[in-house]
C-alpha cells in the first residue's frame, strides 16, 4: 500500500484529505505541523506528503527545506497545499523542492488530478 503523510494544523483539512486519499488506497498518517512531520519522516519515510504552508512551530517551507537534507529525504513526492496563491510564493515552494502545488480550497477532483500529475495515482 502507498503511504501518504498529511501535514496540516487544521483537523478538518486532515480529515477531508484522509478520506479522499484512502479512497485511492493510500495508507494515511497525519501530522499537525512541520516538527511533528519531520519526526514522522525520520521514523518511516512516506511515499507522498500533502503539505500545508502556514502552521505553528515549523511551517511547510521550513519542513521541506529540512526534509530534502535528510537521508532519503529526496524520495517522497511532496505536494504543497496552501491558500497562498501568489505566483512568486508558489514558485518559492517549487524552488524548495515541492513537486506539485494545490491551491486551497480543494475538492476530491483537484486532489486526484494533482496526485495523477505527480505520478502518484
Amino acid at each position: 500500500m502507498k503511504t501518504c503523510l498529511v501535514v496540516d494544523d487544521s483537523r478538518v483539512v486532515r480529515k477531508v484529505a484522509r478520506r479522499i486519499l484512502e479512497g485511492h488506497d493510500f495508507e494515511v498518517t497525519e501530522a499537525v505541523d512541520g516538527a511533528e512531520a519531520l519526526a514522522t519522516c525520520r521514523a518511516a519515510m512516506p511515499e507522498a506528503i500533502l503539505l500545508d504552508w502556514n502552521m505553528p512551530m515549523m511551517d511547510g517551507l521550513e519542513f521541506l527545506r529540512r526534509l530534502r537534507k535528510e537521508p532519503r529525504g529526496q524520495e517522497p513526492t511532496v505536494i504543497f497545499c496552501s491558500a497562498e496563491t501568489h505566483p512568486d510564493r508558489i514558485a518559492e515552494a517549487l524552488d524548495c523542492g515541492a513537486d506539485e502545488y494545490i491551491m486551497k480550497p480543494f475538492d476530491s477532483e483537484i486532489i486526484e488530478a494533482k496526485f495523477a500529475e505527480a505520478g502518484l495515482i
Binding site: 508558489i90 517549487l94 491551491m103 475538492d107 477532483e109 483537484i110 488530478a113 494533482k114
Partner: peptide
C-alpha cells in the same frame, strides 16, 4: 478549480 484540473503547477505559472 478549472486551472487545477489537468494543468501542472509549472504550466500554470
Amino acid at each position: 478549480f478549472e486551472v487545477q484540473r489537468g494543468l501542472p503547477i509549472r504550466g500554470l505559472l
